[in-house]
């Protein structure tokens, strides 16, 4: 028996909106630790790892580890029917072939339940070791989204370089080139407007902008994004999910031609 009650149901809507373009079908894994997911895009170039810790739920009952195979676009359709302020409860029996989403309005005057068919999904889990990164950039998530969107109008790839000057996002295309440099800046009115660059070594990596733009669908979840870079390793683009977890996107760097 699984029963997860999330007071901030709107968070789950935002989580699904940030996943559904990258991944079609995925297994949600439920354990005592929390509600999690690891899935790759169809070309196995990008991966998303979601964790919503059990403590973040108002009620979290998971009698035994359970894996729920869901079509993310169908799940997003169902969650779209919840109000942004609704309390969302996810329910499933141990041997269930469906999952129930229950939506309660904040003043309890409307209660809806939606039942969605589950599916069997063969998923490959990758072991992702904890890594020390050469550079970690924390910046406003909206700024990062704007940069990725702007650069993708000019080129297909972005070179992200971190030096002591700051972080540079560069692209080139048929019409020309573009470079955007963001400097370390903590003298801001609000902490979420800061750009914090921690650099052990200079690093420069090339990534497909198509995936970066897909990751920025998570922008409504968090004011800040963390971009962790090391030579010859996938970049990690992380958004916090309130105080209860995170969504991390991994993208393999392109090999320099």
């Amino acid at each position: 028996m699984l029963e997860l009650r999330l007071v901030q149901g709107g968070l789950l809507k935002k989580v699904l909106d940030s996943l559904k373009d990258l991944v079609n079908d995925a297994n949600f894994d439920c354990s005592a630790t929390g509600f999690s997911l690891q899935a790759m895009d169809s070309s196995h170039v990008a991966l998303v790892a979601l964790l919503l810790r059990s403590e973040g739920f108002e009620h979290y009952r998971c009698d035994r580890n359970l894996s729920l195979g869901m079509n993310l676009s169908n799940m997003a359709k169902m969650l779209k029917c919840a109000g942004n302020d609704d309390i969302v409860t996810i329910k499933a029996d141990d041997a269930a072939d469906s999952v129930t989403f229950m939506f309660e309005s904040p003043n309890q005057d409307k209660i809806a339940d939606f039942d969605m068919k589950l599916m069997d999904i063969d998923s490959e889990h990758l072991g992702i070791p904890e890594a020390e990164f050469q550079a970690i950039v924390r910046m406003p998530s909206a700024e990062f989204a704007r940069i990725c969107k702007d650069l993708s109008t000019i080129g297909d790839t972005v070179v992200i370089s971190v030096t002591k000057e700051g972080v540079k996002f560069s692209t080139r295309g048929d019409i020309g080139t573009a470079n955007i440099v963001c400097r370390h800046n903590t003298s801001v009115d609000k902490p979420e407007e800061a750009t914090i660059i921690e650099m052990e070594e200079t690093v420069s990596l090339t990534f497909a902008l198509r995936y970066m733009n897909s990751f920025t669908k998570a922008t409504p979840l968090a004011n800040q994004v963390t971009i962790s870079l090391s030579s010859d390793l996938p970049v990690v683009v992380e958004y916090k999910v309130a105080e209860m977890g995170h969504i991390r996107f991994y993208l393999a760097p392109k090999i320099e031609e």
Partner: peptide
């Protein structure tokens, strides 16, 4: 594209 490796080039299958 040829210059785009897959994630399995970096992380092992569990």
């Amino acid at each position: 594209a040829d210059n785009q490796p897959r994630l399995s080039a970096f992380f092992a299958l569990k």
